[in-house]
Computed example of a mutant assay.
Amino acid sequence: MKLHFPARTGDAAWEGEAPDALEHPELYDGLALRRSLAWFLDMIVLFFLGVTLWGVVGLLTVASFFALTPLTVPLGILMAAFLPLLYHSYFIGKTGASPAMALFDLEVRSWNGSPASMAQGFLHSAIFFATVMPSTWLILVVAFLNTRRRCLHDFLAGTVVVRASRLRSYQA
């Protein structure tokens, strides 16, 4: 199977299903650790973004002499609830990886090799956040039960995570 790394134009990096981990192990090398570290770093970034947004909401509340409290408190709660979803959806749909995922050389691709769409980025993120807390992280065990290291939300969103630099090394 020949692979190539296209610009984010919609071209597929491979034809058909994702490359087999036995034929191309370099694409999946170290994914579990890299994904975990990237998630942790993204959560640190989101924490600081959330603190900043809560600070702005707090300032608006105080500046209005608490008259805006009925609006700012629900707004702050909505921002805290949806900030991680919006953050991951945007970056996965726009660039194929959140900033931390890019730092750890990861990229989310559609199962057929094309760049993940904005809808897939949203679905990938929404399924992750909807399932990871109620399952007490057990859904992530799925990654250790398959050779491509796909988590449950990867299966349900039709995505696969690969090492971006290794994908670029293939020639058409």
Rank of each mutant, 00 (worst) to 15 (best):
L152F: 07
D29W: 14
V62Y: 12
A18I: 10
A18M: 06
L68A: 12
S135K: 14
H88L: 06
L37I: 05
L138A: 09
F122E: 01
F48E: 07
G55T: 15
S64W: 07
G30A: 12
L152Q: 03
V73T: 10
H4E: 04
A157I: 09
A81F: 15
W137D: 00
G113M: 11
P84M: 05
A97L: 07
A97R: 15
R148M: 03
S165Y: 10
R149C: 09
F40K: 13
G96V: 00
P99R: 05
A67T: 11
W111F: 15
D154G: 00
V56T: 01
D11G: 08
W14L: 04
L103V: 05
T136A: 15
T52K: 05
T9D: 13
P134R: 00
P134A: 13
I92N: 01
I139K: 08
F129G: 05
V161R: 02
L103T: 03
S114G: 11
V62R: 15
G16M: 00
S117Y: 04
G158Q: 03
G58E: 06
L152R: 06
P134S: 14
C151R: 08
V160M: 02
E23I: 11
L3T: 03
F91D: 03
A12S: 11
S64A: 01
Q171Y: 15
R148N: 04
L78K: 13
A126H: 08
W14T: 03
T52C: 14
S114Q: 15
L85Q: 08
W14G: 06
T69N: 06
A21G: 12
L31Q: 14
V45R: 02
G10Q: 09
V132T: 13
L71V: 14
D42L: 05
F128G: 04
V51H: 11
A21L: 06
S135H: 11
M118Y: 11
M1D: 10
L49M: 10
P74C: 10
L49Y: 07
F66K: 09
P70D: 08
A63G: 02
A157S: 11
G158E: 03
A63W: 15
R148Y: 05
T61D: 12
G113C: 04
S125K: 00
F5L: 09
P74I: 01
Y87E: 02
R168G: 02
K2P: 15
A126T: 06
G55C: 02
F66T: 02
S135P: 09
W54M: 11
I44A: 09
G10V: 13
I127G: 07
A80S: 07
A100Q: 06
G96A: 01
V132A: 07
Y170S: 12
L86N: 11
